[in-house]
Design a binder for these strands. Structure first.
Lengths: 107, 107
DNA sequence: AGTTTCCTTAGCCATGAAGCGAACTACCAC
DNA sequence: GTGGTAGTTCGCTTCATGGCTAAGGAAACT
């Protein structure tokens, strides 16, 4: 799950798609235009975003409309927040740095 | 940059390393142990984390110590926050969902 | 000095990601 | 029904990732 979510965000094309979809749903064609890429290639990105749960699509007629799935970002946000909480709960950043420089041994 | 950061987090081994390092610095050997993996393979993960700016390492004697670089996570957090801010500024989640259901009903 | 420990480097392999073009389907407009 | 529009599917390259082994080097231990 986290693999897919972070993996999906690790590509500029896909981040651009997400940014665009933050303004509202859009059909594949429209999404693809700025990226100067074969549609078949572009569809893979949509597929990745879908598998990651960041985007859902519905087809009406011949148009497939993509929309953002805001809940899809939760796992990533939660993980980042947990990491941050864990870290700052244990040591503040500066102290950690100094400790590290002083003695390299844990425990 | 974001590519590398998100890419680095898109792997369970590396997320585990990050989690472990949240408790404080550790030598490569110790980090590697739980992962049942050849050291040379494991080192690649460390390399990825370093290139992403999430981890720094220093070598003393024959031991390379790894520590977390908390600022490295900032780009990811900023990007996620911006996306969230952008979205909620325009439409609240529920409204978006309803709109979607209204003018694009699935068959 | 010799051995062990902890990387480091190099090469190899399998898999998957990211792109392409071409051929095909399904729909909408005329 | 023809023709263009919007996806879809297929097969193909190319390159990165994640794993391995094997061989080697520099500290540290005895």
């Amino acid at each position: 799950m986290l693999d897919n979510v972070f993996g999906a965000m690790a590509d500029p094309t896909r981040r651009a798609i997400i940014a665009r979809l933050s303004d509202g749903p859009a059909p594949v064609k429209e999404l693809a235009e700025p990226h100067g890429m074969a549609l078949s290639s572009f569809l893979k990105h949509i597929g990745v975003l879908e598998r990651a749960g960041l985007v859902t699509t519905t087809k009406r007629g011949r148009v497939r409309t993509c929309r953002l799935q805001p809940e899809g970002f939760r796992p990533a946000e939660v993980w980042l927040a947990a990491r941050r909480r864990h870290m700052s709960g244990r040591i503040d950043t500066l102290a950690s740095l100094l400790t590290g420089l002083r003695d390299d041994k844990p425990e």
